[in-house]
């Protein structure tokens, strides 16, 4: 599904290398987790894959189902099936959540040459999917993320994911700022979307999210590289011993 090869990325504004040769393959139907200390480049990887400005790709490649991602505009990547759940979802006053969702769904459909979803159909689907995430009518009506609690913002991200039905989902620290109950709810939402044809890349600091979203693989990222890969047990090791041991081991 997602193939990242030898990806080198620097900041545009300053001569600072963030990613120093990332290699990673996420297969359809699998959940890969990336863990790592602050500043290791995890969020940068998610931004570069989804097309945020301010980064320069110096070397390497990233493709999704054989299509070069790095050459596309952010909206083209989205229409091709890439989705990033933001660590800090942006507040957009004056734009209703529902309007935003519908514009996003139909923009992607239009870009793919599909028919737009009718208002009635959209309403039906959105209500059903919002319900399972405990998102009420009021949250759908309010401006995007404005006045939402941390948990509401993250649930709203998952609702967008559920509506857009992407092929490849990247979750950037979706657990940050969530209490245990909220994390469970978000994880249930993600698990409901797990399927044969869909890949997941879950970026997190903590093992506890991975108790709820069970990964197939766990990668440890440090200093702009993936330094160790293993099964779910690797996350437990991090939880118990911290990153220091692993980093010392691979150094």
């Amino acid at each position: 599904m997602l193939n990242i090869k030898n990806l080198h990325v620097s900041l545009e504004e300053e001569d600072k290398q963030i990613l120093k040769g990332v290699d990673l393959t996420v297969e359809a139907g699998k959940v890969h987790a990336i863990m790592g200390p602050n500043g290791s480049g995890k969020s940068t990887l998610s931004y570069v894959l989804s097309g945020k400005g301010g980064y320069v790709v110096a070397d390497g490649s990233a493709d999704m189902e054989g299509v070069d991602l790095l050459d596309m505009e952010p909206e083209e990547r989205a229409a091709a099936g890439l989705f990033l759940a933001f660590q800090y979802p942006v507040e957009i006053p004056g734009v209703g959540n529902m309007t935003f969702l519908r514009t996003a769904v139909n923009s992607q459909r239009k870009a793919r040459g599909e028919d737009e979803m009718s208002a009635t159909e959209f309403l039906k689907v959105v209500r059903e999917r919002a319900k399972s995430l405990k998102i009420d009518a009021d949250m759908l009506k309010r401006p995007v993320n404005v006045g939402f609690s941390g948990g509401e913002k993250k649930r709203n991200e998952i609702l967008q994911m559920a509506m857009l039905e992407p092929k490849m989902c990247i979750l950037d620290e979706t657990d940050s700022g969530l209490d245990v109950d909220a994390m469970k709810l978000v994880a249930e939402g993600v698990n409901a979307l797990r399927s044969e044809g869909r890949g997941f890349l879950v970026i997190t600091h903590y093992q506890r999210l991975l108790d709820h979203i069970k990964p197939d693989y766990v990668h440890i990222m440090a200093n702009g590289r993936i330094v160790k890969t293993g099964g779910p047990e690797l996350a437990l090791e991090v939880e118990q011993n911290g990153y220091a041991d692993i980093l010392a081991e691979v150094a």
């Binding site: 989804s50 097309g51 945020k52 505009e73 989205a78 933001f86 004056g94 923009s107 967008q160």
Partner: peptide, 26 residues
Amino acid sequence: ALFYLRSRGVPQGEATDMLTLSFLAE
């Protein structure tokens, strides 16, 4: 905000308009 909208598939022009209307909303 512009990147957020574009990452959801809203083309740059429309996304800019949405944010402009959002600015005027108050």
